[in-house]
Computed example of a mutant assay.
Amino acid sequence: MVGAKKNYIGRYLIATLLLLIMVYPFIYLILNSFADWTQVDKKLIPTEFTLRSYEWLLTGGDVGIARPWLNAFFNSAIVSIASTFLMMLIGILVSYALSKLVFKGRDFVNNFVLFHMFFPALILLIPTFLLIERVGLYDTYLGLIIPKAVSLWAIFMYTNFFRAIPDTFIEAAKLDGASNLQILFKIILPMSKSITTVIFLFLFTERWTELLWDMIAARSDDMLTLNVLISQMFGPYGGYPGPMYAASVLLTIPVIILFLFFSKKFQEGMQFTLK
């Protein structure tokens, strides 16, 4: 009995230590965003704290112009929300067709989706850039949003989930005169809240933290997203590590808030994905 208790305490201590190792970088990020500038990156745990880094960001720092940071934050919000909405809408419509409708070429489309999921996305980066440049979408919101409007992963996840929903629900709705869109949005989607939460959180997080495409598709300061602006801090803003940490905290806040708000549904959805 005593040996079993010691083993339990040992496993608990090891798990706690591993958790602290994983969480510490984020704790370090938060502490240094509030740390006095004389202690930023000079102590593992700062002892003096201030709001100077956040004030520097929100008031424009030495130049007195807050636009670069606030504008970049709003750019990230606009691009991420619009892209996530389109990825989910297209994913829902395509998945319903692949899982519940019978049409010629359905198996080909489904196999194409599976094949393209393992296709290196970098290969299409240059053709996509040339395309948006030639149609006049370079350095615009549409140029940042449209190329990221389709998620094959979302289509794959929704297709598998919709297939698990019994066809008797659809047949009963059709007997009542419901159209496919009515069946999808009034019957299928309400039954898919858990998986929708998982897909939404993953898609939003992926788009919110997108760096490579945002760096390529936008040129002007007015169109920079927050993560691109943070990546540039190692150049002209390299002498301000405190504000860099503060900007990084601002970048992670929306994701944390969304996860905490949808945590219950997220856990339910993950249980399905792991089956």
Rank of each mutant, 00 (worst) to 15 (best):
M1T: 11
V2W: 08
G3C: 00
G10H: 06
I14M: 10
L18R: 03
M22C: 13
I27M: 12
I27R: 02
I27V: 15
S33A: 15
F34E: 00
W37R: 08
T38Q: 12
K43A: 10
W56T: 10
L57D: 01
I65G: 00
A66Q: 01
P68G: 07
W69N: 04
W69D: 01
W69G: 02
A72G: 14
F74E: 03
N75C: 09
S76W: 09
S76P: 07
A77H: 01
S80G: 06
F85C: 02
M87W: 00
I90S: 11
G91I: 06
I92Y: 06
L93M: 15
V94Y: 05
V94L: 12
Y96V: 08
A97F: 11
V102Q: 13
G105W: 10
D107R: 11
D107A: 12
F108G: 01
N111Y: 13
V113Y: 05
L114W: 04
F115Q: 01
F118M: 15
A121R: 09
A121Q: 13
I123F: 11
P127W: 09
F129A: 01
L131G: 08
L131T: 11
Y138N: 03
D139V: 11
D139S: 08
T140Y: 10
T140M: 09
L144E: 10
K148M: 13
A149D: 02
A149F: 06
W153D: 00
A154E: 02
F156E: 02
Y158F: 15
Y158C: 06
T159D: 05
F161Q: 03
F162D: 03
F169D: 04
E171M: 07
A173D: 04
L175I: 14
D176Q: 06
I183W: 05
I183C: 03
K186Q: 12
K186H: 10
I188Y: 03
L189E: 04
P190N: 08
M191A: 10
K193V: 09
T196F: 13
V198R: 02
I199R: 02
L201H: 05
L203S: 13
F204D: 01
R207M: 12
L211Y: 14
D214S: 12
I216C: 03
I216W: 03
A218I: 08
L224H: 08
L224Y: 12
T225C: 02
L226D: 04
V228H: 06
V228L: 09
V228G: 06
P236E: 14
Y237N: 10
G239H: 09
G239L: 10
L250R: 01
T252K: 00
I253E: 05
I253L: 14
V255W: 01
F261W: 14
F262M: 12
K264R: 15
